[in-house]
């Protein structure tokens, strides 16, 4: 594989996504921004959907690295979930242009399926965190919480800035729902 061309094409995304909408993006425009020949794009990715698939993997890698860095040394539980969520939201805002491209590219199953799998993986990790925080119904809570987290990310992406009121509502749900389901489980026992 032509690694330098691949790296240049992926690196060009950040600047280009700030200027060009997903629907306006073409292979020619991408190659021009990256300083790479069209034949090289064809050799590396073949088509734009494959490019978006690789770009999404790069986005997920960056996100994971950021979350691991921000939560290093923190014990499992609610605080670590909030730190990871804050880094998730911050990373989404910082990568707003690329994220908009990726959301639009989910019309392609090659992009949509890995995104869905990523959410499943986060759900499993979060379920473990919630169990460590002694929450009843940890898996169900994890799935609901991730849906809300993605909604907050979407709200902030459209606003182009942090929306603290949404983040507070998210923490409220995390704290209250964990407490409510645990109380319900204890009273049923």
């Amino acid at each position: 594989m032509n690694a330098p061309a691949r790296d240049k094409l992926l690196a060009a995304a950040v600047a280009l996504a700030a200027q060009v909408d997903h629907d306006e993006l073409s292979i020619a425009r991408l190659c021009s921004a990256a300083g790479v020949g069209r034949h090289e794009f064809k050799a590396v990715f073949g088509e734009l959907s494959r490019y978006f698939e690789a770009l999404q993997l790069q986005f997920f890698d960056g996100l994971r690295t950021r979350m691991l860095k921000m939560t290093a040394g923190t014990a499992p539980g609610a605080l670590r979930i909030k730190l990871a969520s804050e880094s998730y939201l911050a990373y989404c805002l910082e990568s707003a242009g690329v994220l908009r491209w990726l959301l639009a590219a989910r019309a392609h199953s090659a992009v949509r399926q890995p995104a869905r799998q990523q959410i499943v993986n986060y759900g499993l990790l979060l379920g473990g965190e919630l169990r460590a925080a002694h929450c009843a119904q940890a898996d169900a809570l994890s799935r609901l919480y991730l849906a809300m987290l993605n909604e907050v990310a979407g709200v902030e992406l459209r606003a182009g800035e942090r929306r603290p009121v949404y983040r507070h509502a998210l923490w409220h749900f995390l704290d209250q729902a964990c407490g409510a389901t645990t109380r319900q489980a204890l009273s049923a026992a």
């Binding site: 609901l144 849906a147 749900f173 409510a180």
Partner: peptide, 29 residues
Amino acid sequence: AARLCTAALIETAVAESEAGRKLPAMRDT
């Protein structure tokens, strides 16, 4: 809160559609 809970409700509907049955844990939570 309504906006976030609507997202959670849609997720519940998606999960139930995938499972083809009610998922009481999600509803109850």
